[in-house]
């Protein structure tokens, strides 16, 4: 019975048997936003101005105006974000089926490799080794790439911009179609500024994670934090973007429900 399951869920949540982990970065003006060559249109960073704070502008109330792009801070990528997903049905944040906002997560720990090599690329081989240890990735699960990138100093080390562009880890161009075809994943999530690697424009196709995931109506999550607090398997992600008309993505609060065996 659904009622019984939800009652049991609430009991376990309140008793601490289910732990909530916030995978969201705080929206602040100095949080790094993806950077394109200056002649292209740019995503607005987060900006905030006080409307009033219990003062002459509004004596009893405090509130702010803020502005940002759909792809600022911890955010969700809808399929329509990429040209490969432009003609798919229900490909924008307002039309994506609701059940897409709750899914299980598999967390692949690439933190050691990414520390050694900022250009680390996740491969099929690496995922298979992970599966050998933790079991096969179930269908319709998020694959989250833990790199500890969120712990790097922002904005400089986080964007890691060199003369030849940004250097940050991501998936290679073989593993993405393989995850879709062979594992039927829900989407791909990262801690860095995008779901693709910093140098992904040099892969074939360029930006393979965007190209294949969105081209197959799958989703993206990026600029996440606290992935180190998730188990390799068994957590559930709640990630509902804002309902922006024809929106290509949206900043959002990403919550993970994690079984807490100690409680």
């Amino acid at each position: 019975m659904t009622t019984n399951i939800l009652t049991q869920f609430m009991t376990e949540l309140l008793s601490g048997k289910i732990r909530l982990v916030d995978l969201t970065e705080t929206l602040s003006p100095d949080f790094p936003t993806i950077v394109l060559p200056p002649e292209f249109g740019q995503a607005w960073p987060f900006r905030i101005e006080e409307i009033s704070r219990y003062d002459e502008r509004g004596p009893a109330w405090y509130w702010n105006n803020f502005s940002m792009s759909e792809h600022t801070g911890t955010h969700f990528d809808a399929p329509a974000h990429w040209v490969s997903g432009k003609d798919l049905p229900d490909n924008t944040v307002d039309s994506i089926p609701l059940d897409a906002f709750i899914a299980e997560a598999c967390v692949i720990d690439c933190s050691a490799e990414s520390r050694e090599n900022p250009d680390f690329l996740l491969t099929i081989d690496f995922v298979e080794q992970w599966e050998a240890k933790h079991g096969r990735i179930p269908e319709r699960a998020w694959v989250l790439m833990r790199t500890d990138w969120s712990k790097r100093e922002k904005p400089s080390d986080y964007l890691n911009m060199q003369d030849d562009g940004a250097h940050s880890p991501g998936p290679d161009s073989q593993v993405v179609p393989w995850l879709i075809k062979e594992r039927n994943v829900h989407g791909f999530g990262t801690e860095s500024v995008g779901t693709d690697a910093g140098q992904a424009q040099h892969l074939d196709p360029p930006f393979p994670c965007h190209y294949f995931m969105h081209g197959n109506n799958r989703y993206g999550l990026q600029c996440m934090t606290n992935l180190d607090q998730l188990p390799p398997k068994g957590s559930v992600i709640f990630s509902a973007p804002l309902k922006i008309r024809s929106g290509s993505g949206s900043p959002l609060r990403v919550l993970a429900l994690v079984p807490n065996d100690a409680a």
């Binding site: 602040s28 003006p29 100095d30 960073p45 900006r47 905030i48 101005e49």
Partner: peptide, 10 residues
């Protein structure tokens, strides 16, 4: 000094 004139906070 890290100073961005578009960022009131900064």
């Amino acid at each position: 000094q890290a100073l961005d004139v578009t960022d009131t906070d900064s």
